[in-house]
């Protein structure tokens, strides 16, 4: 049957057509297409890789920033805590110092007061005794001749007053 017996002319032309087509496409067609497709695929791959890396870096940077913020916050809290501690400590110390100072001052004041009091007392005593002597002298001068026994008596009386 005609269909199953290859026709010589058609075989010849098919061969010629295919070889020509192959030569033309193998020279100018397929290599260009395959190279272009390959290079584009490479570019895309590289782009994806680059994007992935960039994202990774960004994520890293973000994490790092987060870490820094966290750290800063911690440090801040610590500092605040320290400051508070220091404040209370300083206050405490100041209080202590102040109280010590105050007690010292009080002490000194007490001492000086005591001293002044004593001095005043002494002076007052002298003066009182002098006044009283004077008074007594003036009063008694006329009455008493014996100055000396009078003064002893007055002193004795003054001592009694003082004891009271």
């Amino acid at each position: 049957m005609e269909l199953f017996t290859p026709d010589f002319g058609l075989v010849f032309w098919m061969f010629v057509a295919f070889i020509l087509l192959f030569l033309v496409l193998a020279k100018w067609g397929w290599p260009v297409i395959l190279k272009s497709m390959d290079s584009r695929a490479d570019t895309i791959d590289k782009g994806v890789e680059y994007a992935r890396e960039a994202k990774e870096q960004l994520d890293n940077a973000r994490a790092e920033a987060q870490k820094y913020v966290e750290e800063a916050r911690e440090r801040q809290a610590e500092m605040l805590r320290d400051a508070a501690k220091m404040k209370s400590q300083i206050i405490e110390e100041a209080k202590k110092e102040a109280s010590a100072e105050a007690s010292k001052v009080m002490e000194a004041a007490k001492v000086s007061i005591e001293q002044s009091r004593k001095e005043a007392e002494l002076q007052f005593r002298n003066e009182v005794s002098k006044f009283s002597l004077d008074i007594a002298e003036k009063m008694v001068r006329k009455q008493l001749q014996d100055d000396k026994s009078q003064q002893e008596l007055v002193n004795k009386m003054l001592d009694e007053i003082e004891k009271n």
Binding site: L10, W13, A17
Partner: peptide
């Protein structure tokens, strides 16, 4: 027979 028959022409068109 090297005629450009219908099939041969179709072949060339396809090419």
């Amino acid at each position: 027979d090297f005629s450009i028959t219908k099939n041969v022409l179709a072949l060339l068109i396809a090419a």
